[in-house]
Design a protein around this nucleic acid. Structure first.
Lengths: 192, 192
DNA sequence: ACAGAAAACGAACGATCGTGCTTTAATAGG
DNA sequence: CCTATTAAAGCACGATCGTTCGTTTTCTGT
């Protein structure tokens, strides 16, 4: 990938994590990257393409920073715990100071049909499926009770994550609560 | 409240639930309500005031439609279940076709300091506190285990709600999962 | 019915939006 | 060194944004 484009997407990712995907504007982004509006525009040829590029860049970075490292942990509960431990490298990190762009865009784009939503849809399903698979593996390893439903697990896992994201700015110590919630979720499914 | 203003806020609430609080524009809203931009504007004197008015109207409606009716149920677990049952009258209803404006705005406004955020902050704390209180009451009634943490309960409750909202457009049957999640949350705290 | 108040309107402002078109600057291949 | 390709810039467009101002319509009270 061109160096300039990478720099643009990096800046855009930062911005989107803070202010949301449709608050992203080409003029503002051009100012932030010290480029001309048209020069930046030429890299994407439409705002929609820019938004899609940001989403895909975001997913790629997430994989690098959280998901791939987590799969280095041994299969089963340990890997799920690794995922939890690695998440701070994503949300609230230097590259993604605010929320996860994909999860938060899901809230603001769920009624706007079009290519951006299609991309979001695809990435979120992928996101979700990864966690389902992780739960399924844990089940196969015999570390989860046989009646564990991996999809239910994924739903509750992501929900807690969303709760953490949404309530981060509230004086409720959500980090502790999200950790406790996910711990309880694991224990509930773990073989005793 | 003036009839016109009520009509405007009703329309605005609908719009915000579908497209988010900062997608709300005065011109668009004027078109939807068949008013002139300036005529509508005069009711609020600034966009921020409009946004605040929508949030407060939203909270008021929520109280009418979900919270007040729920408090008619007997104290304890029954009341919490009533809250869950009444929620569809809010999210996805005729007046609020999309997401809960307060919960979803929380995601997109958490980095924008100012009067709108202050209002959002206040309302969300109120939202949260109501659920904490409900859990506390259930605890006092002896229907929850003594080691139940009402704040943890509220966090997980709201998280599941956010999960339901966010994943409504995904083919994951999130309604069933949210119900199951909240049922599991209740059972986990209930005295056996 | 008439005067005064309140509500709604129409037109315009500066700013910013996304997007083209044309030109200049940088780069690479022969 | 010259040329062909690409990247970036400059400028302008129509549209929409929030907001202001002055006028017109609608309502209210006497």
């Amino acid at each position: 990938m061109h160096e300039t484009k990478e720099k643009i997407l990096q800046q855009a990712l930062q911005f989107v994590s803070l202010y949301g995907l449709d608050a992203l504007s080409i003029g503002k982004l051009a100012k932030d990257t010290k480029m001309s509006k048209s020069g930046l525009f030429a890299h994407f040829n439409s705002k929609e393409n820019l938004q899609i590029a940001v989403l895909e860049y975001s997913a790629q970075r997430f994989t690098e920073v959280v998901f791939r490292p987590a799969t280095k942990a041994p299969r089963g509960v340990a890997r799920i715990r690794a995922l939890v431990d690695l998440w701070p490298n994503w949300i609230g990190s230097k590259t993604v100071a605010g929320d996860c762009p994909i999860l938060s865009s899901l809230t603001e784009f769920d009624e706007k049909v079009g290519p951006v939503w299609d991309c979001l849809f695809r990435l979120t399903n992928q996101y979700h499926q990864s966690i389902v698979t992780m739960a399924q593996i844990t089940l196969d390893e015999g570390e989860f009770k046989p009646d564990t439903n991996p999809e239910q697990f994924a739903f509750e896992f992501i929900s807690l994550l969303l709760g953490y994201q949404a309530m981060r700015k509230l004086p409720l110590d959500p980090e502790k609560k999200w950790l406790k919630g996910v711990e309880s979720l694991i224990e509930r499914n773990e073989v005793s």
